[in-house]
Design a protein around this nucleic acid. Structure first.
Length: 585
RNA sequence: GGUCCUGUGGUGCAGUUUGGAGUGCACGCCGCCCUGUCAAGGCGGAGGUCGCGAGUUCAAAUCUCGUCAGGACCGCCA
């Protein structure tokens, strides 16, 4: 139907007869003798000169044949790649008329996202979505190439699988042939990729759709895509190499710059310095441990397991209400409170600094001096201090650091980071059993296997695992681990977790059975395509790189999903919908 | 499960604090004019149950309560 894409026509085509197809981006009508039409396709916009009698309105779809000509002197448009030419002497064919678009098609107006999603088919025409979806395709393609270069084989795993009780909430699909039974949609291909290793695939990868029925966020949708991989006869170090190659390839394909080697930080350091297992290392404001300064403090609030602080440069300008808001925020996050101290020039001839704070009077001179020194306070800063249990102190200051310091998504480059040496267990539950930080097949750190044999209770929290995360600018891109392939180690882990042999057989029997038949040592990883694409595209929200995303409540404003289904359909599945629970409170 | 923010012609906003007639701005839309525009320009016009429902009041876009929708975050996401 066409000879060229609208956005591709240049001065070199002058004199040629071309046919272009696209949407009417705008019209500038001068009279019945002259009108300019901007015709748009995914490649760009070209100016078409017609007489004013053609009824070409916004978003009409047209096919136009005409002659490419250089624009008149002084009328070129430097802002447009096609700005030096226009198409004249046109034959116009309207392929589709169109109602006025439900929102402005220019890129200047931030339209309400619900309205964009309700008319996503129109929204997708806009430059932003065109660019983002194409960026996504580039990422996918680069990842495939990188994995294939490294000898990985793409294997597809099933979408209808058995529900497992661990982990996130499953999406389930009722079985028609076995009423009362359900398939689950996969949260990840975890079990299957490990079975592939037993099956001698050696190096597996898949760009896999995963589903988790958990609350949605800017970086979380019900369904998301992951580069999922697993390899046999490899170490953690090998996995870093495979994934680095893929992520570097994707980054280079989008930005043109290949990232250098990805730095590493231990989980413990990440928590101590950034208060997060997914630190945004684009900016400083690191946490500083002040606990020892208050070993003998008179200030009750600082008689805590942990006292830590961060320094906000220039924060002394904050108003009292702003500081109160921050304090409220910390309380909402679960903290007891927030201490702030403005760093001001001391009065008197000696100079120096003084800390201005409502609680300064409860602290000794030595304590105040210690705070200023440790936090490297400078005039005009504000210091924030939190005292609480270790983990909560780190967490609260980590959140505050992000709240105050995080740069916009488009600033600071792409700071990839490996977070290594995750703990094997993240907590001890009320029964005294440790809660696994990853799945129960994660191999303990080789140096800690002996500890594992004897440790009990709190001491188990110090056991490290061979689990690792990849982080980009404060977003967790993905995680992986070296898996347990030895039944004796696996039994010990199940034992510690309080999972009996019978229960283990019930939950993971098919995997344990598979391991009886010769399991190679193996390790793997998975990272989110939506997240990495969003960051590479400069978007704060993964919905901007997904063609048809859901809203935060899990609805699709376009198709109206989720919807009720016919009673007959339910009956066939052996299902009945209960009336909504009434609230008697 | 929780905290906070936002709902005003098709779109983006102002108006809400301190109640007084659906008031205003920009874009878009429709019509007319205009032979070099490109965020075209000029003139005219249409278009709103102020998300929805109660309450307070002589009077509610504005105050109160509830509810729905959207967003950010905490929990959750092995």
């Amino acid at each position: 139907m066409r000879t060229h894409r609208c956005g591709d026509i240049r001065l070199e085509h002058a004199g040629e007869t071309v046919t272009v197809c696209g949407w009417v981006d705008g019209r500038r009508e001068h009279s019945q003798h002259l009108a300019f039409i901007d015709l748009r396709d995914y490649a760009g916009i070209v100016q078409v000169v017609v007489d004013g009698n053609h009824d070409l309105r916004s978003e009409y779809v047209a096919r136009i044949t005409g002659t490419v000509a250089a624009r008149l002197d002084g009328t070129a448009n430097a802002n447009l790649p096609t700005g030096e030419i226009e198409i004249r002497d046109c034959t116009v064919e309207v392929l589709s008329t169109a109602e006025a678009p439900p929102f402005p098609m220019d890129e200047r107006t931030d339209v309400d996202e619900t309205i964009r999603l309700r008319h996503r088919y129109v929204d997708l025409r806009k430059k932003r979505m065109q660019k983002n979806l194409r960026t996504r395709a580039v990422v996918n393609s680069a990842i495939r190439s990188a994995m294939e270069e490294q000898g990985f084989v793409e294997v597809e795993t099933p979408m209808l699988i058995a529900s497992t009780p661990e982990g996130a909430r499953d999406f389930v699909v009722p079985s028609r042939q076995k009423p009362g039974n359900f398939y689950a949609l996969p949260q990840s291909p975890q079990i299957f990729k490990q079975l592939c290793m037993v099956g001698g695939i050696d190096r597996y990868y898949q760009i896999a759709r995963c589903m988790r029925d958990e609350d949605l966020r800017a970086d979380r949708q019900f369904e998301f895509m992951q580069l999922d991989m697993e390899a046999s006869f490899v170490t953690q170090e090998d996995v870093f190499g495979f994934i680095s190659h893929a992520i570097a390839g994707a980054t280079e394909a989008v930005t043109g710059e290949r990232p250098t080697e990805i730095p590493r930080i231990t989980w413990d350091d990440a928590m101590e310095r950034f208060g997060s297992d997914k630190p945004d290392t684009r900016f400083g404001m690191e946490l500083v441990n002040l606990t020892d300064l208050f070993a003998e403090t008179e200030f009750n609030a600082f008689k805590a397991d942990r006292v830590m602080g961060i320094r906000m440069p220039g924060g002394a300008e904050f108003s009292r209400s702003k500081l109160d808001d921050l304090t409220d925020m910390v309380k909402r996050w679960g903290g007891k409170g927030l201490v702030w101290m403005k760093v001001e020039a001391a009065e008197g001839e000696q100079g120096g600094l003084t800390l201005n704070s409502p609680v300064a009077k409860f602290c000794s001179e030595a304590e105040l001096a210690g705070i200023a020194e440790r936090l490297e306070a400078e005039e005009g800063d504000v210091l924030f201090l939190v005292a609480d249990r270790k983990r909560r102190t780190q967490h609260l200051l980590g959140l505050l650091r992000i709240e105050l310091g995080r740069p916009p998504v488009t600033e600071g480059g792409f700071n990839y980071l490996w977070v290594v040496d995750f703990p094997l267990f993240e907590d001890i539950n009320d029964d005294g059993k440790p809660v696994p930080a990853h799945h129960p097949f994660t191999m303990p750190h080789p140096d800690d296997i002996e500890v594992l044999e004897t440790a009990e209770g709190e001491a188990l929290l110090d056991v490290r695992s061979q689990a690792y995360d990849l982080v980009l600018n404060g977003w967790e891109l993905g995680s992986g681990s070296v898996r347990i392939h030895r039944s004796d180690v696996q039994s010990r882990i199940f034992d510690i977790l309080g999972i009996g042999a019978e229960e283990a057989q019930l939950k993971f029997g098919f995997l344990l059975d598979a391991f009886k038949y010769g399991a190679p040592p193996h390790a793997g990883f998975a990272f989110g395509i939506d997240r990495v694409t969003a960051l590479l595209a400069g978007e704060e929200n993964i919905r901007e790189v997904i063609a048809f995303p859901k809203t935060q409540s899990g609805a699709d404003p376009l198709t109206k999903a989720p919807t009720p289904i016919d009673t007959s359909h339910l009956t066939e599945l052996g299902l009945q919908v209960l009336p909504e629970e009434e609230d008697f409170s």
